[in-house]
């Protein structure tokens, strides 16, 4: 994993403000998404983040050091 599980949870949480604001921002350039389309974009982003997170770093499958030392 490229990132710790807790780090991944926070990254996924940060997608929430990104998604709700993205809809407004896109409307400025006349791209108006429905709720369903926004949800689909969100799902794609979540999958992209998960794929990135679970891909082994440098191909050796090593867990990210990240906050591993804070698991006390």
């Amino acid at each position: 994993m490229r990132i710790s599980k807790a780090g991944l949870l926070v990254v996924l949480a940060l997608l929430a403000p990104l998604l709700v604001e993205l809809r407004t921002v896109l409307s400025w350039i006349n791209v108006e998404l429905t709720v369903l389309e926004t949800a689909v974009v969100g799902a794609i982003l979540v999958v992209a983040v998960l794929v990135w997170a679970f891909l082994p770093e440098n191909g050796n499958g090593k867990t990210a050091e990240g906050d591993a030392s804070s698991e006390n």
């Binding site: 710790s4 780090g7 949870l9 906050d67 030392s69 804070s70 698991e71």
Partner: peptide, 21 residues
């Protein structure tokens, strides 16, 4: 805690700790 880089240090923060997060 070993964090490096311009933004890479963010990964070294203790996100597992609810007090910090």
């Amino acid at each position: 805690r070993g964090g490096e880089g311009y933004f890479g240090w963010l990964k070294a923060l203790p996100w597992r700790d609810p007090v910090f997060t």
